[in-house]
C-alpha cells in the first residue's frame, strides 16, 4: 500500500509523469497502428465468409457436379449449370493472353532496350494513361468501334474474339509496366557479356537479358490473367452474353463476371445464391492466380 502510494507520489513529479504518459501514448498509438494494419485481414475474412456462407449452400443444393458441369443455365426452370460461364471466362481470358501478352512483352523489350529517350517520353505517359482509363470507356470503344469492324470482317460482331482483343488491349499496360521493370532490373553485365561474346544487340537482349527477367515477365503475365478474368463491364459490352457454351471463337459468350453483373439486380432465392456460387468459382480462380503469383515471385527472389 505504502509502496503504491510512493509510486503515485513519484509519478506526480513533473518529468516522471511526463514519461509515463508518453509511454502510454506510445503503446496506445502502437495498438492503433496494429489495428489499422489488421483491417486488411478483417476485410479478406469478411469477403470469404460472406461468399462462402451464401454460395456454398446453394452449390450443395444444386449439386456440385451439376453446378460445375451442368450445361444449362435457365433460372426460370431452376436449372443452374455454370459450365458455359466457366468455359466462357477461361476462353476469353486465354484469348486475352494470346492477344495481349506477346505484344505487351515485346513492347516492354522495346521500351527497356531499343527506345530512344525522346520517344520514351512520349510512349511512357501514353501507357500510364491507358492504365487509368475506366473499363466502361474501353467497353464503349469496343462496342462502337471494334464490334462493327469485327462484324464486317468475320460476320460476327459480339464474340469471344472481340472480347479477347479488347481484353488484350486492356491488359497491355499491366503486362508492359511489370515486364519493363523486370527487364530494367537485369544487371547491365548480362547484356555487356553477351555483346562482348559477339552477339548482336537484338540477340543479346532476347537470348540473354529476357531469359534473366523470366520470373518478372511471368509475374506480369499472371497479373494480366488476373485482370482479364476479373473484368466485367467491358466484357458485357462486347461479348454478346448468351448463357450457352461458346461453339467457337466467333460465337457469343457470357463470362462468370458478366453473369453476376447482369442477373444480380433481379435475382432472388436460389437464383441469387447460384450467382454467389459463380462468384465463389471466380474467387477460387483468383486465389489460384494469387498462389501462382507468389510462387513465381518466391522463385524469382
Amino acid at each position: 500500500m505504502s509502496m503504491r502510494a510512493s509510486i503515485r507520489n513519484a509519478a506526480s513529479v513533473g518529468t516522471a509523469r511526463g514519461l509515463r504518459s508518453r509511454a502510454a501514448a506510445e503503446t496506445v498509438m502502437r495498438i492503433v497502428f496494429l489495428i489499422a494494419a489488421c483491417a486488411c485481414i478483417l476485410c479478406v475474412g469478411l469477403i470469404c465468409a460472406f461468399l462462402l456462407a451464401n454460395g456454398a449452400p446453394a452449390i450443395a443444393r444444386i449439386g456440385p457436379l451439376k453446378f460445375l458441369f451442368g450445361l444449362d443455365w435457365k433460372p426460370g426452370r431452376n436449372l443452374y449449370g455454370a459450365a458455359p460461364m466457366i468455359v466462357g471466362s477461361l476462353f476469353v481470358t486465354a484469348g486475352a493472353v494470346i492477344a495481349g501478352v506477346p505484344i505487351g512483352v515485346l513492347t516492354a523489350v522495346f521500351l527497356a532496350r531499343f527506345c530512344g529517350k525522346r520517344l520514351y517520353r512520349f510512349i511512357s505517359p501514353a501507357i500510364s494513361m491507358m492504365a487509368g482509363i475506366p473499363s466502361v470507356v474501353y467497353g464503349f470503344f469496343g462496342m462502337t468501334a471494334l464490334v462493327p469492324v469485327m462484324r464486317a470482317w468475320f460476320g460476327a460482331g459480339k464474340s469471344v474474339l472481340t472480347a479477347s482483343i479488347l481484353l488484350g488491349i486492356m491488359i497491355l499496360p499491366t503486362v508492359i509496366r511489370v515486364s519493363e521493370s523486370a527487364l530494367r532490373a537485369v544487371p547491365d553485365s548480362y547484356y555487356e557479356g553477351a555483346a562482348a561474346l559477339g552477339a548482336s544487340r537484338e540477340r543479346s537482349v532476347f537470348f540473354c537479358v529476357l531469359p534473366a527477367a523470366k520470373s518478372g515477365v511471368i509475374a506480369a503475365v499472371v497479373l494480366g490473367i488476373g485482370r482479364a478474368i476479373g473484368e466485367t463491364m467491358a466484357v458485357i459490352m462486347v461479348a454478346g452474353n448468351q448463357a450457352v457454351m461458346p461453339g467457337g471463337i466467333l460465337s457469343g459468350v457470357r463470362t462468370l463476371t458478366a453473369n453476376i453483373a447482369l442477373e444480380m439486380g433481379y435475382a432472388a432465392d436460389l437464383h441469387r445464391e447460384a450467382l454467389i456460387g459463380c462468384a465463389v468459382v471466380l474467387f477460387a480462380f483468383i486465389l489460384l492466380i494469387n498462389l501462382l503469383l507468389s510462387a513465381v515471385k518466391r522463385k524469382g527472389a
Partner: peptide, 25 residues
Amino acid sequence: RIIRVASETLAGIPSIIYGLFGFLF
C-alpha cells in the same frame, strides 16, 4: 507476412466480387 498476404489477396480481387460482397454485407 500475414498482413501482406491479405493485402495482396485484396488487391487481386476483381471489382465485381467487391460489388457482390458490398451488396451482401
